[in-house]
Amino acid sequence: MGAMKAVSVITVSLLLLANAFALALASNGFVALAAAAAVLPYVLIATLALGVIALVTILAARTPAGGNRAAATPALPVAAPTKAPQADAEIVGFLATLQAKGRLVDFAMGDINAYNDAQVGAAARVVHAGIKSVLDEHFRIRPVQDGAEQSAVQVPANYPADEYRLLGKISGQPPFSGTLVHHGWKTDVVKLPTILRGSTDRLPVIAPAEVELK
């Protein structure tokens, strides 16, 4: 099933590329007209062929054993997005929160070289206070490994591979003994706001322009 999913993803990616190519050719105007006229049939044929492969893949994915519909759905070739994907909108929404509470975008986009450390430090306090409140509100962040950094720790056998990164000389069998360099961070709670979106296909703004009326 995983392989099939991968195939459908690759197929659709190719399809999108081909469509983009066709679109680019069409919109390049008359300068490329001669070339386009020559290439276009092949592109269209390629598109059609890829569409067929996609369809077959999707049909194959819908095996009688219940069929993982959720996994197969994104592969629908005709589902050209009508507006910016919700996932992107949510990420921009979160960036908007970081900007609203912690001025993160102002901080990163400002020219840091023109200012001395005291000025940067003052700005950093604004960012720190705001970002911390956002992290506290939306996540529950804790160290992966308890204990002070630079102290001796033991990495247990069957440790979750993503929770530990072994450095230095790795040999033998777990459990491993070593020195804690960074205690890591993890969260087990994510509580993000829902994005309110109108009918527009745009992404939400990160921060609106502010205009004061008298």
Binding site: R103, D106, F107, M109, G110, D111, I112, A114, Y115, A118, Q119, V120, G121, A122, A123, R125, V126, V127, A129, E210
Partner: peptide
Amino acid sequence: APIAIPARGSSLFASTIS
């Protein structure tokens, strides 16, 4: 406890009062 007050504009470095 330190307090930093940003200004309204986008320039955080130039006008934050500490």
